[in-house]
């Protein structure tokens, strides 16, 4: 285990050390005090434990690495993640996992607005609630919400799947509730197990695209 203390190391030094790690290496990062862009651009299967709250853009562009944040995360957590796993034990601020292509993001607490905006294949599991405009223009991947969802969930959604255990304040344009078929139950069960969330799959409802925005509709020309 290599310890990096941000009282004595700069953020750039931290990221260079983490980016230079080999698969299986373990790192612990301390004295974060809300600093930005911690543990970004990792491309190997290192294990990073960050102790404390982090600021903007933590774990951005992650590939393969497993990153645990023991605290809360600021805006832009795991933005454009490609693979690997990022876990936050507290809450995450807005646009977590924006545009992320793959991997798993687990937020044990709440996630605020625009969670999973334009997600492109990432799986996101939120233990608490999510804010408004989450999964906006979400293209693929799954967003699992164990609490409630805010306004305009899944607005202009493409083929991403949303599973919500609690209440949905409102659905966005072209997002509808859909039947929970066997393949969805299997997928949800696996995601809950992988993220260590202990809820019954029968408590969740599935939401997705009505696919009405995919093509121009001449009958709605007056709406444009």
């Amino acid at each position: 285990m290599t310890e990096i203390n941000l009282d004595t190391s700069s953020v750039r030094e931290l990221n260079l050390v983490l980016q230079g790690g080999s698969s299986g290496d373990k790192f612990s990062v301390n004295n974060t005090v809300g600093k930005h862009a911690l543990s970004v651009g990792l491309t190997t299967a290192v294990n990073v434990e960050i102790n404390g709250h982090v600021g903007y853009y933590c774990a951005g562009m992650n590939q393969q690495a497993s990153i645990v944040i023991n605290g809360n995360a600021g805006p832009g957590l795991a933005e454009n993640m490609m693979s690997g796993e990022v876990r936050v034990t507290g809450n995450a601020s807005q646009y977590a996992a924006a545009t992320a292509h793959g991997g798993l993001l687990v937020i044990e607490g709440d996630s605020s607005s625009r969670c999973g905006i334009s997600m492109k294949g990432v799986n996101i599991v939120v233990g608490g609630n999510i804010g408004h405009m989450s999964a906006f223009m979400a293209q693929s991947g799954c967003l699992v919400v164990c609490g409630d969802a805010g306004d305009a969930l899944g607005d202009s959604i493409y083929e991403a799947k949303i599973y919500v255990r609690g209440k949905v304040k409102s659905l966005g344009t072209d997002c509808i509730e859909k039947e929970m078929r066997d393949e969805h139950k299997k997928e949800l069960k696996q995601l809950l197990s992988q993220s260590k969330m202990h809820h019954g799959i029968e408590e969740f409802r599935r939401y997705g695209s009505a696919r009405k925005l995919y093509n121009f509709d001449i009958d709605q020309v007056d709406d444009y």
Partner: peptide, 13 residues
């Protein structure tokens, strides 16, 4: 605006 400003306060953690 950001946590890092609050982190300067005693007991913030």
């Amino acid at each position: 605006s950001e946590y890092r400003a609050i982190a300067t306060l005693p007991g913030a953690e």
